[in-house]
Design a protein around this nucleic acid. Structure first.
Length: 852
RNA sequence: GCGCUCGUAGCCCAAUGGCAGAGGCACCAGGUUUAGGUCCUGGCCAGUGAGAGUUCGAAUCUCUCCGAGCGCACCA
């Protein structure tokens, strides 16, 4: 089926019936022609290019950033929502007189586009750049206030040259390294995946079950920054969504505990030290066995000869398991006895050592002390293999050995003493942990320790459509960096070649490209044939926007200093962990390199909700998809944007079944009609206008400011609707169309509407006798005198119950208000001789009389 | 299981400790119209998931419970 493009439907579909027919009326049209208006203004704006950021503009700078799109097909409803919301902020900043940077680019390397291109038998570059053009045109029609001059694509050599350059700098700092280890493998996409890209054991992209492979791969050492990534989230409270911070905190997964040194007593009579990590060193006396991760190297080294066969067979079974099986809950514990013992450092006790898959090789030390009485997982294991359970904390609950339920709370320590050390009688977990940790430090058998769940970022991909890794493998010199002056390592075209994933990168087959001279010794060598994860590309694009044509580095430090950190980032919550964590990591590394002077790239983050239909995510299988192009053809860009913004709070999911784009269009027509009714001349003094309407206008403009700052765009729209209603009334049954206040109100409507509905706003602006563009005309100036009401309604309560309303001056004194309240008949009746205990007066809003 | 967010008219949502209703959708009536739609005017509708607490006063703050969404989940 032919793809429906936003940009090629406008001429083929007619306007909806309601728009068309109203246009038939005689002289003055009763409704504006949606599509004619779009066609009229788009070329004007393109020519005027009003949203170009100026590095040298002395006005205060504001950086409005939206997550750059991935070029798969045309824009969809999700794009329409995020851009509508984002643009309210950017356009508002323009109107407020800031020097705004609102750039756009494309995250144009990557697997989905590569897969789609292969499926169509196209080259990924052809497919990708065609999509970019389509999306760019759609964005223009959608009238997002982008600075088109800064457009970038991560797949352009001028961009990825610097991605490679950054990789080499990271490597110089020991933050990019190569390691042979088991990795996540997607058998469908034929590539490795980062931990963050494995969702419930499935490939995040294609949904295939992820398996393990042992491969030599490149990693970024994110773990070095774990603590800082955690600590610096403190400064993001209030400006980042709480749930995103929670997700990142969770993902980083800091835990405090201790390393404890046990001694392994091997089958050949020798001994070997082993360290375990535990968050509960205070339960050390309750350790009745030890468990080593089955797939840890250690297990194979220490297993007794008599148990080797059993262990090997168990390990083979573990290796075959997919993550899906491994992660399934309620799964019975499995394991195998390694046939040796370990000595507990505090009491010299010998406990059996087992191997099991519930202990993870790559967390902590890959070995644990098992305390079944106070850890559910250990207890499950103990019960499965009939291992002893010893309670060392009496919490008052039933004995775990009997109930099968481990107790993890506070209680009184028991059975916890040995020579010179005893926890018995303590009742507090923290005290127990502190005491035993101190004792372990003293005896040299352990120490306090911190662990993170965060793993290093695996960045190699065995795919074609990505940024080449600028490393050359030389048989004599080993890994050699491509010298900076030879960057970029350009991705070979390979047009006509078979680019299908085969488990090794297609680049490896490009003989001319792979075989090079070693930059170090000049001998024959080979390029690294993997490409980088696209999240590397997107971890620094926001910096590049500040100086997109800079050729002396990834970005001009001066420009970055003047624009960054971004004041507002808008995008989907699907990037709560991956992209945002990686970008924070990159920023911190660049800070440590002295290239930027800030440590957090995004001051504020707004996650828009998802656009769903009928309560469910749009999907082909459900058949509930809504096509953006069709919506725009039917209702116009403005009505679609307005619908997105008005539907509810931006963070909430937007159910297309609950909204009314036709209602949005009706409102826009209503607003537009005002501009035709105004009869006063442009430039007329508003000061003489009807003060009642002027008050509404100024209050609305004033309130709009904080509503936008608070991202309460839906309320903003409601307030503009009120202003439109008030203006309509003033025209029809109030001060009349010639009153300057009507012009003032209508101009304010046009300006505020330009945030959401730029086309109709521009059309109104022109009909009001102004030149384009309304978007750059400036925010209306609020007269504080008009914010003060002539009179306000004060409420009078007795015991919190409403008794009377009073019209009073806004600046009434508390005592006067109280006196007025006390004189109200309804109040006197309610008091009826009762004792007044207290009178609360909040002038000029309320009086509350408390009686005894 | 843990974490985060959230429960307000038939529906989407306002009310930032002070009269529960701003706006819209849907619905109904009247006017306009040859008619339908548009447009104009008016109307209809809940006591805020349940319970307790703090307070002069709670949709709003606190606690417990119920329900929903999202995220994490054998990380010792």
């Amino acid at each position: 089926m032919r793809q429906v493009l936003l940009t090629d439907r406008a001429e083929t579909l007619e306007a909806p019936a309601d728009v068309r027919r109203t246009n038939l009326s005689e002289q003055e049209p009763a409704a504006y022609d949606v599509h004619a208006t779009e066609k009229k203004w788009l070329p004007v704006w393109t020519a005027l290019d009003p949203f170009r950021a100026d590095d040298d503009d002395p006005r205060e700078k504001r950086y409005a950033l939206t997550m750059f799109p991935y070029p798969s097909g045309d824009l969809h409803m999700g794009h329409a929502e995020v851009m509508a919301l984002h643009d309210v902020i950017a356009r508002y900043w323009w109107l407020r007189g800031y020097n705004v940077l609102n750039p756009i680019g494309w995250d144009s390397f990557g697997l989905p586009a590569e897969n789609a291109a292969i499926k169509r038998d196209e080259h990924p570059a052809t497919y990708t750049y065609a999509n970019i053009e389509t999306q760019a045109e759609s964005f223009r029609r959608y009238a997002v206030s982008f600075d088109w001059s800064r457009r970038l694509h991560t797949s352009d050599p001028e961009y990825y040259r610097w991605t490679q350059w950054l990789f080499l700098r990271f490597r110089e700092r020991g933050l990019a390294y190569r390691k042979f280890s088991p990795v996540n493998w997607c058998p469908n996409d034929q590539t490795v995946l980062a931990n963050e890209q494995v969702v419930n054991g499935m490939c995040e992209r294609c949904g295939a079950e992820v398996t393990k492979r042992e491969l030599s791969q490149w990693y970024f050492k994110v773990t070095d920054y774990a603590q800082r990534l955690l600590d610096d989230m403190e400064g993001l409270h209030g400006t980042w969504p709480e749930r995103v911070l929670a997700m990142q905190r969770n993902w980083i997964g800091r835990s405090e505990g201790a390393h404890v040194d046990f001694t392994l007593n091997l089958a050949d009579g020798s001994s070997k030290p082993v360290t375990v990590y535990t968050t509960r060193p205070d339960t050390l006396y309750g350790a009745t066995f030890m468990v080593v991760a089955a797939d840890a190297k250690l297990a194979g080294e220490i297993v007794a000869p008599a148990q080797r066969a059993a262990y090997e067979s168990y390990l083979a079974g573990v290796r075959k398991e997919s993550d899906i099986e491994r992660l399934s809950t309620d799964r019975p514990k499995t394991g195998v006895d390694l046939g040796i013992t370990a000595t507990n450092p505090v009491n010299g006790e010998q406990v059996p050592v087992w191997a099991a898959d519930y202990v993870l090789a790559d967390y902590g030390t890959g070995a644990i002390m098992a305390v079944p009485a106070h850890d559910q997982r250990d207890l499950d294991f103990a019960r499965a293999f009939d291992l002893p359970v010893r309670r060392v904390i009496d919490t008052g609950e039933d004995n775990p050995e009997v109930t099968g339920i481990a107790t993890t709370g506070n209680g009184t320590y028991v059975n916890s003493s040995s020579d010179g050390l005893s926890l018995d009688g303590l009742t507090d977990k923290a005290a127990g942990i502190a005491k035993i940790t101190a004792a372990l430090v003293e005896s040299g058998e352990g120490e306090g320790a911190v662990n993170f769940r965060l793993r290093d970022w695996l960045l190699s991909r065995q795919r074609f459509w990505g940024c080449p890794i600028p490393i050359i493998h030389c048989p004599d010199c080993g890994e050699v960096a491509v010298p900076d002056d030879q960057l970029p390592v350009v991705l070979p075209d390979l047009r006509g070649a078979d680019l299908k994933p085969k488990g090794t990168s297609p680049l490896a087959a490009a003989e001319d490209w792979v075989n090079v001279d070693c930059p170090s010794c000049g001998g024959p060598a080979k390029r690294d044939s993997d490409t980088m994860d696209t999240f590397v590309d997107s971890s620094w694009y926001f910096l590049r926007y500040c100086s997109p044509d800079y050729t002396d580095g990834p970005f001009d430090p001066e420009k970055v200093r003047s624009w960054m950190p971004a004041h507002q980032y808008v995008g989907g919550v699907e990037h709560a962990i991956l992209h945002l964590l990686y970008s924070r990591f990159f920023t911190k590394v660049l800070h440590d390199m002295g290239m930027v002077d800030f440590e957090e790239p995004f001051q504020a983050l707004l996650n828009q909700g998802q656009v769903v239909n009928g309560g469910k995510a749009m999907s082909k299988s459900l058949g509930n998809g809504v096509n953006l192009g069709e919506m725009i053809d039917a209702y116009g860009v403005d009505a679609v944007r307005l619908t997105m913004v008005f539907a509810g709070p931006p963070e909430d999911d937007l159910d297309w079944a609950d909204v009314s784009p036709s209602g949005s269009l009706k409102f826009l027509q209503r607003a537009w009609r005002l501009s035709g009714d105004v009869t006063s001349q442009s430039g007329v003094s508003f000061a003489d206008g009807d003060v009642t309407l002027r008050r509404v206008t100024h209050k609305t403009v004033h309130d709009a400011e904080s509503l936008i700052d608070g991202h309460r765009f839906n309320v903003l729209v409601a307030r503009v609707m009120e202003l439109v209603n008030a203006t309509r009334k003033a025209i029809d049954s109030g001060c009349g169309p010639a009153d300057p206040a009507v012009r003032e109100a209508t101009e304010a409507v046009a300006i505020m509407l330009s945030l959401v509905a730029p086309y109709v706003a521009e059309e109104m602006w022109e009909r009001l006798g102004h030149q384009p563009t309304v978007a750059k005309t400036g925010w209306p100036v609020v007269d504080p005198a008009l914010l003060v009401e002539e009179s306000v309604t004060a409420i009078v309560q007795v015991q919190g119950k409403l008794k009377a309303r009073l019209d009073v001056a806004p600046d009434i004194a508390a005592a006067d208000l109280e006196a007025l309240a006390m004189a109200e008949p309804a109040v006197l009746a309610a008091l009826d001789g009762k004792t007044i205990r207290k009178v609360i007066v909040v002038a000029p809003k309320l009086v509350n009389i408390v009686i005894g």
